[in-house]
Structure formats: structure tokens, C-alpha cells
Design a protein around this nucleic acid. Structure first.
Length: 300
DNA sequence: TGCGTTGTTTCACC
DNA sequence: CGGTGAAACAACGC
């Protein structure tokens, strides 16, 4: 599922592969993806040139000449694949359609053709994503409306103090807390599991029960997991099964496989309605503070 | 074929 | 107002 690393990789593809190119033709096969677009027709892009690309949280923004910005959210299964006339391809996001397969795929809903024959294919097998075309001057307000918190990594990375403060106010499972985009932006189900595994924290631990040391490890874990995902251009997960590269992802999508750190089989449980993968040995539940003998406190 | 899937919004409630 | 938990929603593949 496209999270910060996958969307950031898409942004970089737009910059390296599309910047300076001018739109010649647009094909929209699924108009409902523009249902909440201020400018209803993608045809408005014709004749305009890509001049930049931005990202905030999991939202991609492609800036065009003529003060137009195309805002894209990949949700569960969005994918951008850019194909050049010489056969070169650059793909980011969900692994379906296959990056080296035939395009357009049946899940390819938008095609943007550029003047030199380069094509940008937007696919989304789940059709949960959306496109919004708007005057560039409206972008800031549109982003503000999401209420995103600081980013999980990079220049706008959340500070340790801010993370500590936010977690101390929440009694919900720490995993649920870091999935909250208003607390820290860009972390989704994959990277939440990875960050908690790195930090050796049980995902169901109430956020406000973490020690200062644990919060610091989590802060580092979030950064680390996102950077690692970015280094690989995103994770490959198909039907809840991970296809790890260089040990990443370590736990997400790897139920029953040995923990890379200790060899204990990875378990899958549900935390806050989300499928959650963790190592039962590295990520132990915290001991209940008082009330000793009774059955273990139910968390999550 | 009904269920699982996740990011986001909405809502009732404390 | 802010935190919580649950439900709703999008639509597909298995």
C-alpha cells in the first residue's frame, strides 16, 4: 500500500522523468476518480508543462504551468508508471499492474501523454484513490484541510519531544497512534509494523505507557523504516504477502516466517482493526503495572 | 460468495 | 474541545 516512501518515490519519478514535458493528450477511463476535483476535466492539462512535484504525507502534487496542480492520493493500490519512447520505465506504488507487464492494464484509469511520446499511466486496482485538479494557489488550503501532523522522516520530521508529548496524551495502542496522520504523517500499516519491530515495542502497548527510552527507539524506528522503504523505492506486498529485499520488510506480510533478529516465527494479530505483524519474542507485551495475578490485560 | 483489505471521514459519546 | 472507538466507504480478488 502506497505510504510515504512509495509516494515520495513517485514524486521523484515525476521530477526526473516528467519535468519539462508538455501534456498533449489525456485519457480518463474512470471519471469518478475526479469526483472531488475542483476542476472537473483533466483535459484542462493539455498544453501545460510539468514544472515541479511536491509531497505532503501520502499526497502527491504535480505542478503544471498555467498555475495548475494535480493532486493525487494512491490510497490502497495506486500506482504511477512512466514509459518513455525508448522503452525506459519508472514505476512506483502498488506492484499491480506488473511494472514490466503490458500497459494500459485493465486497472489503468488515467493516461497522460506528453509531447515527446512519454506516457504516465495511473493505475489503481482497488479504485480507492483520487485525483484533484485545482489552481495551484488553492493547494495550501487543500493540504491544510487534511490536518496533517509533522512528517515521519526528512526535513519536516517530527521532533522527539513532539512525539513524546503526543503519545503521552493517548491511551490507544501505540500502533493506532502512529497511524494517525494528524500525529505523524506518512506512516501506514507496513511502516508502522516495521517501526515497532525496530523499536522492539509490542504494537498493542497503550501509547502513554511507553518509557522515554521506548519512545526514542520508536522515533528512530519510524525514521529508519521510512528511509529503508525509500531506499528500495517502496515495499512489495501482494495479497498480504511480502516479497522482501535485503531483509525489508522484516515482519509485515511475513506471518510464520522467522524474525530476522531472533528467529521466532512472526505472528499476525489485529490491533485497532488493522492486520498487525510482530515478533512475539522481540516485542513483548508490557507487564501490567498493578493487579498482579488476574488474567493478562486485553490490549487492542 | 461473502469476507478481507486500508486510508480516511464521520459520528456518537465521554 | 479533544480523545476514543466504531462504523461507513471506496471496490476488487480470492
Amino acid at each position: 500500500m502506497p505510504e510515504l516512501p512509495e509516494v515520495e518515490t513517485s514524486r521523484r519519478i515525476v521530477l526526473t522523468d516528467l519535468e519539462g514535458h508538455t501534456v498533449e493528450r489525456v485519457v480518463v477511463r474512470l471519471p469518478k476518480l475526479f469526483r472531488s476535483s475542483e476542476i472537473p476535466s483533466a483535459e484542462s492539462l493539455i498544453g501545460h508543462t510539468v514544472i515541479g512535484a511536491r509531497r505532503r504525507a501520502k499526497v502527491l502534487m504535480i505542478d503544471f504551468s498555467g498555475d495548475l496542480t494535480l493532486m493525487v492520493h494512491f490510497k490502497l493500490a495506486g500506482q504511477l508508471s512512466v514509459h518513455h519512447p525508448d522503452g525506459r520505465r519508472a514505476t512506483a506504488g502498488h506492484p499491480v499492474p506488473k511494472p514490466d507487464g503490458e500497459y494500459p492494464h485493465k486497472a489503468t484509469h488515467v493516461e497522460i501523454w506528453f509531447d515527446d511520446g512519454t506516457v504516465a499511466y495511473f493505475s489503481d486496482i482497488r479504485q480507492f484513490g483520487w485525483f484533484r485538479l485545482m489552481p495551484s494557489e488553492n493547494v495550501d488550503a487543500a493540504i491544510d484541510a487534511f490536518g496533517f501532523g509533522p512528517e515521519g522522516t526528512g526535513d519536516e520530521r517530527i521532533s522527539l519531544e513532539a512525539l513524546k508529548k503526543a503519545l503521552s496524551r493517548r491511551s490507544i495502542p501505540v500502533k493506532t497512534a502512529i497511524l494517525d496522520q494528524s500525529l505523524v504523517a506518512g506512516v501506514g500499516n507496513i511502516y508502522a509494523d516495521e517501526a515497532l519491530w525496530f523499536a522492539r515495542i509490542f504494537p498493542g502497548t497503550p501509547a502513554n505507557q511507553l518509557s522515554a527510552v521506548a519512545v526514542r527507539r520508536l522515533w528512530e524506528g519510524i525514521d529508519h523504516a521510512l528511509i529503508q522503504g525509500l531506499a528500495q523505492g517502496g515495499a512489495t506486498i501482494i495479497h498480504q504477502k511480502a516479497y522482501p529485499v535485503d531483509g525489508f520488510p522484516a515482519v509485515h506480510g511475513r506471518e510464520g516466517e522467522p524474525c530476522p533478529r531472533c528467529g521466532t516465527p512472526i505472528q499476525k494479530i489485529e490491533i485497532g482493526t488493522r492486520g498487525t505483524y510482530f515478533c512475539p519474542k522481540c516485542q513483548k507485551r508490557p507487564r501490567p503495572k498493578n493487579g498482579g495475578s488476574a488474567s493478562g490485560t486485553e490490549i487492542g
